[in-house]
């Protein structure tokens, strides 16, 4: 495959960036999008140019490290992570635009790398259960109803990649936060901190400068793990419940 890439290049957070055009040839349709970028970087290094910086880790679609906006869509045209997106989904000779996640709370570090530590701070404010560490408890000691286990698992699938924020016209982190709140909120292990969790995590989400939800639904469309839009309504319910109960 022969492709034309237009990639966002930005040397550091304080220098304004711009789209730079690169031609690339000999791309196999079986390559992942990241392998295609690797190929581009090899060529750039051989030419003595600065390679394109991008985040990646497991390349199995389970860690949430990778993620770029491809032709205006977070993670590109398929519902998967960027590392699991294959070049066969693009036409030979296509021009592809590659940009970093855009959100006030996700400042660009370099090229396609953004700082997503705001997510860590949301998790740190309540995305856990407080239990003494030690030996694993007896699995049957705490019965979990099957529907609750399914719901928790559905939300636990969130890998925190940030595609929801990147796709949202308001740069909102509601889908991410709701996935975490609902994951722990429906389980008996999460019950003791059910109220403080949602109040603290929403407060941190707001403090970090994420926007509000206008129910545009872009987040759920972009999510590679299929976290549904209803998760947001579920968290709103949890938030209002916790507010009225006074924690």
């Amino acid at each position: 495959m022969r492709l034309t890439l237009r990639v966002w290049r930005q040397p550091d957070p304080d220098t304004p960036g711009a789209m730079v055009t690169y031609g690339i040839d000999g791309i196999s349709e079986d390559m992942s999008f990241l392998e295609m970028l690797d190929t581009l970087n090899e060529e750039l290094i051989l030419k003595g140019e600065e390679p394109v910086a991008f985040d990646h880790d497991c390349r199995e679609g389970i860690c949430g490290a990778c993620g770029v906006v491809i032709d205006g869509e977070a993670h590109g045209p398929e519902r998967t992570t960027t590392c699991q997106l294959h070049m066969r989904h693009f036409e030979d000779g296509a021009t592809i635009d590659v940009e970093p996640w855009r959100a006030g709370a996700f400042p660009v570090v370099k090229d396609l790398v953004v700082d997503r530590s705001a997510f860590d701070r949301i998790i740190g404010s309540g995305g856990y259960i407080t239990v003494p560490t030690g030996a694993a408890p007896e699995a049957h000691a705490t019965p979990v109803p099957k529907p609750a286990a399914d719901l928790a698992f559905e939300h636990a699938e969130c890998i925190g990649c940030g595609a929801c924020v990147a796709a949202c016209p308001n740069g909102s982190a509601m889908l991410f936060t709701s996935a975490k709140v609902n994951h722990l909120g429906v389980l008996p292990q999460g019950a003791p901190e059910r109220e403080t969790r949602v109040l603290d995590m929403v407060a941190t989400m707001d403090e970090e400068g994420f926007g509000g939800c206008t129910l545009a639904g872009e987040c759920a469309t972009a999510c590679p793990k299929g976290i549904p839009l209803q998760s947001i309504s579920m968290m709103n319910r949890e938030f209002l419940r916790a507010t009225v109960r006074g924690r």
Partner: peptide, 11 residues
């Protein structure tokens, strides 16, 4: 909301 998305996508 507008402040949370300060820069637009080129594409």
């Amino acid at each position: 909301d507008l402040a949370a998305r300060p820069s637009r996508y080129v594409h």
